[in-house]
């Protein structure tokens, strides 16, 4: 069992914290706002209200012993400072959420091992321990519906859209298929081009490496992810 600390309990941070706890990990959740801490208290191992940019405060709750830290703080300068402190305290892996590419660059400079882009990563996916990324992109359409980019499950390979019948079986619409096209350049170098097949027809066959762009209810998408 690994020990995680999640700092910043907004939508993203709390989703990461809850998912990690559901997966059976020890989770310390931290936020400067009491309300957010109270909200998550029943779902994680420990929830603490403190200012994470205060090194002493971080030390006092044993952050240095954590295997992984997830920093999901909205304030850019605070997020940079906290990421730096965590690295200095000796946390093995620090994953920090970036607001933009410049922020990402700075985070990497201060030693963040992983930079998360909120528009690309979904809380649950990050919690899935960065191992098998199923979701590549996620846009929230409403509180209940999202557009996600999902790696086509292995069982879909070699089947046509007609055979898969995703809308009928899962209640999800396939907006597009992103397909990799392997290429060898004139210099003999392997390269990849990406094709976007918008509104795939019933005869379109799913192949290895395809990403599906899906629109559906979050809970239906969750089911598909588990395939």
């Amino acid at each position: 069992m690994r020990q995680f600390v999640v700092i910043g309990l907004g939508r993203f941070g709390s989703s990461v914290a809850r998912t990690l706890a559901e997966r059976g990990h020890e989770v310390l959740a931290i936020d400067s706002e009491e309300e957010k801490v109270a909200e998550i208290a029943d779902h994680v191992t420990h929830a603490v209200q403190l200012d994470a940019s205060d090194e002493k405060a971080l030390r006092s709750v044993g952050v240095a012993d954590m295997d992984v830290a997830v920093v999901s703080v909205g304030d850019i300068s605070a997020s940079i400072l906290i990421s730096l402190l965590l690295k200095e305290l000796g946390v093995g892996l620090v994953a920090s959420k970036a607001m933009d590419t410049l922020h990402a660059k700075v985070l990497r400079r201060v030693g963040a091992d992983r930079v998360i882009f909120p528009e690309r990563d979904m809380g649950v996916r990050v919690a899935d321990s960065l191992s098998t990324p199923a979701i590549f992109d996620c846009i929230e359409v409403s509180p209940t519906h999202s557009i996600v980019e999902l790696v086509a499950p292995g069982s879909f390979q070699g089947k046509t859209m007609r055979e898969l019948d995703i809308r009928a079986k899962y209640g999800i619409n396939v907006i597009a298929v992103k397909r990799k096209k392997p290429k060898i350049s004139k210099e003999g170098v392997s390269e990849i081009e990406e094709d976007l097949i918008l509104g795939p027809t019933a005869d379109e066959e799913i192949v290895h490496g395809d990403l599906l762009v899906l629109l559906g209810r979050d809970e239906d998408i969750e089911k598909l992810k588990k395939l």
């Binding site: 790696v151 990799k180 390269e191 990849i192």
Partner: peptide
């Protein structure tokens, strides 16, 4: 690396 990228094995 390119082949792994093609099949989304990012790590």
């Amino acid at each position: 690396g390119v082949v792994y990228e093609a099949i989304n094995q990012v790590a």
